[in-house]
Write a protein that binds this DNA or RNA. Structure first.
Length: 821
RNA sequence: GCCGAUGUGGCGAAAUUGGUAGACGCACCAGACUCAAAAUCUGGCGUGGUUCACCCCACGUGCCGGUUCGACUCCGGCCAUCGGCACCA
């Protein structure tokens, strides 16, 4: 029996406990049903769920439940991205153990997730910080290492002083650390990289395959990979026999206008290129450049500086001798680290040449050229020997071909993407499975010795170095090759390595023989629907795409892209601004569960805004959704004696009113099904819940006219339609109506196309495109019938009196437009 | 500077292929119920004009223009907001 009142706190708790025992949402590896993989980005266990999580997981959960009801074998897993700096920082602050801190947080958040009523297969839970997972992260590292895709090199890398570790390029946002927002500097260090640049072209090209991704994300990745087509031109150094400086340029057409050359402060041959007279000034300049933070150096407003090296190059096209300068507007890690300078046709070169009084030669002419200004537009070549008169586009090709034939140039495609720096000087990560042997050098740990476990005898109170360095047991080991005393690599892997393959592990989460079985992941992947925040547009989503391609090339799987469809959900705002602890406008999911229940939270967070747009959380909105839930419950509670699980609908014996109620149900099924299938427009789905509920309330107004079969059909249809969103409410009602199985096991409702429209419709009658009348008519009348009805409208007759009708446009089942002169 | 997205009532928004602009909800207003309040139920709710009222008329989807019988929707040109990239040669 249904109570008079609905108490979500008690009822939700009851169902949570039942579902906890039965784990009813297991995905079957061997099922005849078609598979569907619905995935949320896995959370970092920071301590508590926030509303962004609630939104993310509710969206995915509704998709998973909908697909399950449609007959799919659904994989909907959850896990924990549980390595990373916050655990270590918490450990340092509270003298706790990072593992304990992390596992405690996971336990709490898992409870919160269960209370949200998510249909997750908890048997496949993955925790990236536990050895049964990071063993395979290390194993995958070794596969990349064997394939030459993981390598160590000394390079200027991004260094965050506060986090005391290096960062990948993707983790530097506007010159600041992505995590702590402090300024990033450059340090020359020997670090591990993944060769993501090997896949630049494929990562770029395959964006076209991702039809189910938004343009915003694809554009961001496109920009980040940053492909440009240009040329390499090589210049002989006048003073040093045999030394050449190659430059990368996209403007080979301006080669006749080169008047000097610039190398980056970190350019490899810079010392050779510096004459004794200039040594002091150059060294001073390089020292200064090193001290600048990324922000200062990259500022476009900054006035350009530089100093001459004293040596020269000879421009092979003109024979002109041009000085070589060092200037930090040349970047060491893009192109060749050296730039040819054509002041008249490049803004940066122009500013620099003006400041240091360097000569300029005009080689492109076009409309609006002004000798006092830079001219970067395209035009016609002048002062360029046999190339004069050509267009810029033709000349780029011709000049590069000329250089190619004469051995001082070639065509070159350049990418902005850099290799992914994956080593971190921190404790709480997967150790890099490499040892250094005095005899054998760099050696991979034997696969059978994995995992390389994190040491536990560490002191977290140390400052300025990795706590792992304080372990007495970790560093020393023996060489896997020769058995000599050797030392371990003391770095751990970037957490983004762990999260680049977790969605593969879900497919085969308990496998202790291999990271995943090839057949099983080929069956489940790619992910059919991935849901998460836009903040991972580049980082996680690019890394995962790289991983998929790299593991495919390691012969571990057989697909090219990990995520077929991607939904990037908008932010959750509170009263118009972003929820944040510092603003104090956060909403605690626990409080919402306590006061309104999880169903209210689920319903509200899906209402109001489509998933991709920002969502504004308001207290009034929560109240409104809670009222809806109570309103629905009251309906079932009041009419429970009339509801029959085995109703019998005979369309021929229905009154007009009954028929309209049945039609409303079919219209609702159609609209809701279509809206979910079309970009998951849950906001309009919920509008339809309300309209359908209002229609049922309307139907029961006069108790004498209720047909119990019609009412049962309407109410059971509504119940199934709301069940993916209001999971507890639907289950409670269904169970109290006497059902012995779960509403969530029931198939999705079907609609009859003939019944999914109203019996009559409103014909719009226009005169010259302006509405003059609205007439109730039968469905599916012929065009001539509609025209006749429209012309007979008194309003039309009056308005057209004495005028000539030139044209009549009839849109079936919609409108008639009468055109008069 | 380049690229992408967005722009509709007081607010969140809706509107198959161009065809009733503002569904649904929030807020607000009025009424019913109540001793009263809450809850609930019923109705109203773009702007302006006209009218006692119903009706009716004009205007209205960021701005300007175009195509069309008809434009939130298509085309051209702007503006604003948000996001990404950017001394990338």
């Amino acid at each position: 029996m249904l109570d008079k009142e609905y108490y979500p706190q008690h009822i939700e708790k009851k169902w949570c406990e039942i579902w906890d025992k039965t784990n009813p949402y297991k995905a079957e590896d061997n099922s005849l049903k078609p598979k569907y993989y619905a995935l949320s980005m896995l959370p970092y266990p920071s301590g508590k769920l926030h509303m962004g999580h609630v939104r993310n997981y509710t969206i995915t959960d509704v998709i998973a439940r909908f697909k399950r009801a449609q007959g799919y074998n659904v994989l909907h897993p959850m896990g924990w991205d549980s390595f990373g700096l916050p655990a270590e920082n918490a450990a340092i602050q509270h003298h706790a153990n990072p593992q304990k801190w992390t596992l405690d947080n996971i336990a709490y958040m898992k409870k919160q997730l269960k209370m949200l009523g998510l249909s997750i297969d908890w048997d496949r839970e993955v925790t990236t910080c536990l050895p049964d997972y990071y063993k395979w992260t290390q194993w995958l590292f070794l596969q990349l290492y064997k394939k030459g895709l993981a390598y160590k090199k000394t390079a200027p890398v991004n260094w965050c002083e506060k986090c005391a570790t290096v960062l990948a390029n993707e983790q530097v946002i506007d010159g600041k650390c992505w995590r702590c927002d402090s300024e990033v500097t450059k340090k020359n260090l020997s670090q591990w990289f993944f060769k993501i640049t090997e896949y630049s072209e494929e990562l770029l090209k395959d964006l076209d395959l991702l039809k189910g991704w938004g343009d915003n994300v694809k554009t961001m990745q496109y920009n980040w990979i940053g492909k440009s087509q240009g040329s390499i031109l090589k210049f002989k150094v006048k003073e040093i026999e045999g030394l050449e400086i190659p430059v990368y340029t996209t403007r080979a057409d301006t080669a006749y206008g080169i008047t000097y050359l610039v190398v980056a402060p970190e350019y490899k041959d810079i010392e050779k290129l510096t004459t004794p007279e200039n040594k002091e000034a150059v060294e001073k300049y390089r020292e200064n450049a090193k001290k600048l933070s990324e922000i200062e150096r990259l500022s476009t407003e900054r006035i350009k500086t530089g100093t001459p090296l004293g040596t020269h190059i000879i421009n092979p096209f003109t024979g002109r001798v041009c000085p070589i300068w060092v200037a930090d507007y040349a970047l060491v890690d893009y192109g060749t680290g050296a730039v040819m300078a054509v002041p008249y046709h490049d803004e940066r070169d122009f500013d620099f040449a003006k400041k240091y009084n360097l000569p300029m030669v005009q080689v492109i002419d076009g409309e609006g050229f002004d000798k006092d200004k830079v001219y970067v537009e395209k035009g016609t070549l002048i002062n360029s020997a046999q190339f004069s008169g050509m267009s810029c586009e033709d000349a780029k090709k011709a000049i590069t071909e000329f250089a190619l034939e004469n051995g001082f140039g070639e065509f070159k495609t350049q990418y902005r993407l850099r290799d992914w720096l994956i080593s971190r000087q921190r404790y709480w990560g997967a150790p890099i499975p490499i040892v250094y042997c005095p005899n054998c050098g760099e050696v991979a740990v034997d696969e059978k010795d994995l995992p390389v476990l994190l040491p536990e005898d560490v002191d977290f109170s140390v400052q300025g170095k990795s706590p792992i360095e304080t372990s007495k047991t970790f560093r020393e080991t023996t060489c896997p090759k020769c058995g000599a005393k050797a030392v371990r690599d003391m770095d751990t892997m970037d957490t983004f390595v762990c999260s680049s393959w977790y969605y593969m592990r879900y497919a085969d989460a308990k496998n202790d023989k291999e990271c995943f079985n090839r057949d099983i992941i080929n069956k489940w992947l790619p992910v059919d629907q991935y849901v998460g925040g836009i903040e991972h547009a580049i980082l996680h989503l690019l890394y995962s795409r790289f991983f998929t391609k790299a593991l495919r090339d390691c012969n571990l799987l057989d697909f090219d892209e990990p995520f077929s469809n991607l939904l990037t959900q908008g932010m959750v705002l509170k009263d118009g601004s972003k929820m944040s602890k510092s603003k104090g406008n956060t909403v605690d999911p626990d409080e919402i569960y306590q006061n309104y229940g999880a169903d209210t939270a689920r319903l509200f967070i899906l209402s109001d805004s489509p998933p991709a747009r920002d969502f504004d959380w308001t207290d009034a909105g929560v109240e409104g959704c809670y009222k809806f839930i109570l309103r629905v419950y009251r309906l079932y509670s009041k009419y429970q004696n009339r509801i029959k699980l085995n109703y019998n609908l005979d369309m021929n014996s229905l009154s007009k009113k009954d028929e309209n109620m049945v039609r409303e149900a079919h219209i609702s099924i159609k609209k809701i099904t279509n809206d979910i299938e079309n970009e998951f427009q849950f906001n309009t789905v919920i509008s339809r819940y309300r309209e359908f509920t209002n229609a049922i309330y309307d139907y029961v107004k006069n108790e004498d006219e209720i047909n119990n079969d019609v009412l049962s059909f309407a109410l059971l249809t509504l119940l199934k339609l709301i069940s993916p969103v209001c999971v507890f409410l639907a289950e409670e009602i269904y169970s109290n109506l006497g059902a012995t199985n779960s509403i969530h096991e029931e198939a999705w409702c079907k609609y009859d196309e003939k019944l999914a429209k109203t019996s009559s419709l409103t014909l719009i009658v226009q005169l010259n495109g302006k509405i003059k009348d609205k007439i109730e008519v039968e469905q599916d009348l012929s065009n001539s019938e509609l025209e006749e009805i429209a012309k007979n409208s008194p309003k039309i007759k009056e308005a057209t009196a004495g005028k000539a009708i030139t044209k009549v446009i009839v849109v079936p089942n919609k409108l008639v437009n009468i055109v008069v002169k």
